[in-house]
Simulated scan of single mutants.
Amino acid sequence: MTHEEKRAWIRLVVSVVGYAAYVVTVAGRAGGRPLTEAPYVAALLWTVGGAIAASILAEIVMAVVNPGASRVTDVRDKEIARFGEHVGQAFVVIGAVAAMLMAMAGWDRFWIANVVYLCFVLSSVLGGVARIVVYRRSMPEW
Rank of each mutant, 00 (worst) to 15 (best):
Met1Glu: 10
Thr2Gly: 02
Thr2Glu: 12
Glu4Gly: 03
Lys6Pro: 12
Arg7Gly: 05
Trp9Thr: 08
Trp9Asp: 10
Trp9Pro: 13
Arg11His: 11
Arg11Trp: 09
Val13Asn: 13
Val13Ala: 15
Val14Leu: 11
Val14Asp: 06
Ser15His: 06
Val16Lys: 04
Gly18Leu: 10
Ala21Gly: 15
Ala21Asp: 07
Tyr22His: 10
Val24Leu: 12
Thr25Ser: 13
Thr25Met: 13
Val26Ala: 06
Ala27Cys: 04
Gly28Asp: 03
Gly28Trp: 09
Arg29Phe: 08
Ala30Trp: 06
Pro34Arg: 01
Glu37Leu: 02
Ala38Glu: 08
Ala38Cys: 07
Tyr40Leu: 09
Ala42Met: 14
Leu44Arg: 09
Leu45Ala: 15
Thr47His: 12
Thr47Pro: 07
Thr47Arg: 08
Val48His: 07
Gly49Pro: 10
Ile52Arg: 07
Ala53Phe: 15
Ala54Phe: 15
Ala54Ile: 12
Ile56Met: 11
Leu57Gln: 07
Ala58Lys: 12
Glu59Tyr: 08
Ile60Thr: 07
Met62Glu: 12
Val64His: 11
Val64Arg: 14
Val64Met: 13
Val65Ala: 15
Val65Gly: 08
Asn66Arg: 12
Asn66Ser: 12
Gly68Arg: 14
Ala69Leu: 09
Arg71Lys: 06
Val72Ala: 02
Asp74Gly: 01
Asp74Cys: 00
Val75Lys: 02
Arg76Val: 00
Asp77Arg: 04
Lys78Asn: 06
Glu79Pro: 01
Arg82His: 04
Arg82Asn: 03
Phe83Gly: 00
Glu85Phe: 09
His86Thr: 02
Val87Asp: 01
Gln89Val: 00
Ala90Tyr: 11
Ala90Thr: 09
Ala90Met: 09
Phe91Val: 02
Val93Pro: 04
Val93Thr: 04
Val93Tyr: 07
Ile94Met: 08
Gly95Phe: 04
Ala96Thr: 06
Val97Asp: 04
Ala98Tyr: 14
Ala99Gly: 13
Leu101Ala: 14
Leu101Trp: 15
Leu101Tyr: 15
Leu101Arg: 15
Leu101Gly: 14
Met102Ala: 11
Met104Val: 14
Met104Trp: 15
Ala105Leu: 14
Ala105Phe: 14
Gly106Asn: 11
Gly106Lys: 12
Trp107Val: 05
Arg109Glu: 11
Arg109Lys: 11
Trp111Val: 01
Ile112Ala: 10
Ala113Gln: 10
Asn114Pro: 13
Val116Arg: 10
Val116Gln: 09
Leu118Ile: 04
Leu118Asn: 06
Cys119Asn: 14
Cys119Val: 05
Cys119Thr: 13
Cys119Leu: 10
Val121Asn: 03
Leu122Asp: 01
Leu122Pro: 03
Ser123Lys: 03
Ser124Val: 03
Val125His: 09
Leu126Lys: 01
Gly128Gln: 10
Gly128Arg: 11
Val129Glu: 05
Ala130Thr: 03
Arg131Gly: 06
Ile132Asn: 11
Val133Ile: 14
Val133Leu: 14
Val134Asp: 06
Ser138Gln: 08
Ser138Thr: 02
Ser138Met: 04
Met139Val: 00
Met139Glu: 02
Pro140Lys: 00
Pro140Arg: 00
Glu141His: 03
